[in-house]
Amino acid sequence: MLKILKKYKFDFSVILAFIILIGYSYTLDFTPGKEIIENNFWNFAKEMFVALPVIFILVGLIHVWVSKEKVQKHIGKSSGIKGIVYVIIFAFIQAGPLYGVFPVTYLMWKKGSSATNIFIFLAATSTARIPMLAFEIGFLGLKFSLLRIAITLPIFIVIGIIMGKYFEKRNLVVKDV
């Protein structure tokens, strides 16, 4: 319990301050406080507390069905278009922030993946990681997400190819940290 309190120290302080604001606003009829609560907070919260649990369930299901290990087997082994497709699938099922996937790129490099594929991986994983995609569709809509991915992916594959060529031309290596 103490550990949880410590971990969410900041969040709990904010929530506590907000509860005090709610109490103050309604007992003393504090209009700005009521406005913050009713116009802003409640509007945002009600949507999120319906949407988020649903999105998280979807992410959980994807996680149990598409394991990283299954896809990882094919990375590095295949090259050309097939390799790119595997790399993109592998990229889509990653989770976590961009800096969290750098160690993955080192593993790919060690497994014999080409530099181009590594940069395509970096681009694809930041374009449309499935866990993130669930949030994007939930909050910004399916149309927005599909359109954004359709435009982003080709542009960033091109960037990946440029980066790969640059990297290979100079005989650079991905280092372990």
Binding site: Y8, F10, D11, F12, V14, I15, A17, F18, I36, I37, N40, F41, F44, A45, M48, L52
Partner: peptide
């Protein structure tokens, strides 16, 4: 908890 505090901060 983080989500709640973010919504609160954004609201304010």
């Amino acid at each position: 908890p983080t989500l709640l505090s973010v919504i609160i901060i954004i609201s304010v």
